[in-house]
Computed example of a mutant assay.
Amino acid sequence: MLIVLSVAMFIVPSMFSLTIHDYLRHGEVSKRRKVVLLIVYLILINAITFAVSYIRGVKGLYFKEMTLSYRLKYLGLGCVLGFVMPFIVCLLTEDIITIGGFVRYARRLFKDLRKYMPYAIWSAKADLGAEVASSYLNWLWWLIEPFCMMIIYTIIFGIVFKASEDYFPIFIFTGITMWGVLQKC
């Protein structure tokens, strides 16, 4: 599990950046250029994330000594950088993309959000209502299910396997809730 998270904390933000970069270019990036961009994003994002960690007092990447919360913080910062970095790289490297193009794109995005937001809210309410319509506790299941899973994971990993994470039940509850939200989206 920790090996997968260790690999993910380095690669996922770069893949996220590459996806956004490809979206900004409307899918017109060649395979060779995608590989080069992936390497550039991999080096750039991890260098910045490691520099921030170093400034905050982490003097090296010792995988055996990393806590789970540190790995998740590293991954989170990497994903934030993975969202911001393609805009900067596109402005610097792509001839087609300009600041004026970003401004036009942002205006169109906010106009479309304003235009389609009522439909999106109505559609989400209808889907969520249909999901819990046949249950006795309705919306309460969305709190009961992660809470029960938190208890099970806390017993298994916290007591049986002796997890040494601070506030482990809250950490598990937050993770399960976020996973449920992302899974339903």
Rank of each mutant, 00 (worst) to 15 (best):
I170V: 10
V160R: 08
L143R: 05
I151C: 06
G175T: 07
N138H: 14
V160N: 00
W122D: 13
Y167S: 13
I156P: 00
V181W: 02
D112P: 03
L182M: 11
W179S: 10
C148Q: 03
L128G: 11
F110E: 04
A163C: 11
L143T: 09
D166T: 13
F168H: 07
K125I: 12
Y136L: 09
G180S: 12
K115D: 06
F161C: 00
W139Q: 09
P118W: 08
I155G: 04
P146W: 01
P169S: 04
A120P: 00
A106H: 06
A163R: 05
S123Y: 15
L113P: 00
G158Y: 03
W142R: 11
E145P: 00
T154W: 05
L140K: 15
L137D: 02
I152C: 07
Q183E: 11
T174D: 02
L140Y: 13
Y167T: 08
A106S: 14
M178F: 11
I155R: 05
M149G: 11
P118H: 08
A124I: 12
T154I: 01
G129E: 09
E145A: 13
Y167K: 15
S134I: 03
T174F: 03
K111W: 05
L140E: 07
K111N: 09
A126H: 13
M178Y: 08
D166F: 02
F171G: 01
F110R: 10
R107W: 07
K125T: 11
S123D: 14
G180W: 03
L182H: 10
I155L: 14
V160F: 11
G180R: 04
L109F: 14
Y153C: 01
I159L: 03
I172M: 03
E131Y: 15
L137S: 05
K184Q: 11
K111A: 12
M117A: 14
D112I: 05
E131L: 14
R108I: 01
D127F: 14
K125R: 15
F161Y: 12
I144R: 11
A124L: 12
G129Q: 13
Y116Q: 07
I176V: 14
W142S: 05
T174M: 09
M117K: 10
A133T: 06
F168M: 02
R107Q: 09
W142M: 06
K184T: 09
L137R: 14
A133V: 07
M150H: 02
L143A: 09
I121Q: 02
L109Y: 10
S134R: 15
M178W: 07
F157T: 04
K111L: 12
Y116C: 09
A106F: 12
L109G: 02
G175K: 06
S134Q: 14
F173K: 02
L128C: 06
W122V: 15
A130G: 13
V132S: 08
I156A: 04
P118R: 09
I151H: 00
G158F: 00
M150Q: 04
Q183G: 05
M178N: 07
E165H: 12
T174N: 11
Y153S: 01
